[in-house]
């Protein structure tokens, strides 16, 4: 049986981790490579870099980060943020990432999912989705970091993305994000019931019990958190110990 995955996400701008990290023993808390190494030590099943570099010139920096991380961290690496075309995907994979997460550009040009999957394989193409509730049982998809409502129905979108070849969906709830009140169970269930590919729960993790909770109540195969791990409130290891104690299959290191 596949292990439930716990995935820390690092927001990176111009090659530096954005949120302050309080890891013991790391001198440069802004260094994404050092942070990735620490998460690896804690038992992260995968590491996500979310590149929020705004300037076009700065875009190459994330490739150096990936290259350096791939020399030191031997778990799957995923990179998201600002991916526009096949060349971007190729460059990231060549730098040593195993997956890319496409979001806004996939909404604007869904063929990017198909082309990416055809060339690199579905396992490389994760669809990132930011969505917000509009009515009971209804959610719409937002782009540009949750700023623009595309009026696109979430469930329709994820079904289409699966048909185009997406290998995985990372579902971020705009409503839950930052609340620390737990994952968005209803939204996750709506998506998990609509697709057969793995779904990563994102947004809302605030305490230990949120993790067994999301796996008990939804079909999510992974849970992602950023600030919870960034600020050292919980370690990946603590989350996994809790999951294991609750009887979920997890990889403990």
């Amino acid at each position: 049986m596949l292990a439930k995955r716990v995935i820390p996400c690092l927001d990176v701008r111009d090659g530096k981790v954005v949120k302050g990290v309080k890891f013991e023993g790391i001198r440069d808390v802004g260094d994404p490579v050092a942070c990735a190494e620490e998460y690896n030590r804690q038992g992260a099943d995968e590491i996500v870099f979310y590149d929020i570099t705004a300037s076009h010139e700065g875009r190459g920096v994330i490739l150096d980060v990936v290259r350096e991380t791939a020399r030191k961290v031997f778990v799957p690496l995923c990179v998201g943020g600002g991916i526009k075309d096949i060349d971007d995907i190729r460059a990231i994979l060549r730098a040593g990432a195993d997956k890319v997460s496409v979001n806004s550009q996939a909404v604007k040009n869904p063929q990017l999912i198909k082309e990416g999957a055809d060339i690199f394989g579905s396992q490389c193409i994760c669809l990132g989705v930011d969505a917000k509730k509009t009515a009971p049982g209804k959610w719409t998809v937002y782009i540009n970091g949750g700023r623009i409502d595309m009026g696109l129905d979430l469930v329709e979108w994820v079904k289409k993305a699966q048909a185009l070849g997406a290998g995985e969906i990372c579902l971020n709830s705009i409503d839950a994000d930052g609340t620390k009140e737990g994952f968005d169970i209803d939204m996750l269930n709506a998506v998990c019931n609509a697709v057969t590919i793995p779904v990563i729960a994102s947004g809302g993790a605030g305490k230990l019990s949120d993790f067994p909770d999301v796996f008990e109540k939804t079909g999510a195969s992974a849970a992602l958190a950023a600030s919870l791990f960034h600020f050292g409130e919980l370690t990946v290891g603590q989350v996994k110990d809790e999951l294991k104690a609750k009887g979920f299959p997890v990889r403990c290191v």
């Binding site: 596949l2 099943d45 396992q123 290998g167 057969t196 793995p198």
Partner: peptide
């Protein structure tokens, strides 16, 4: 179960 078999397994 889905294929590909993708993820961590024992």
């Amino acid at each position: 179960l889905d294929i590909p078999h993708m993820g961590w397994n024992r």
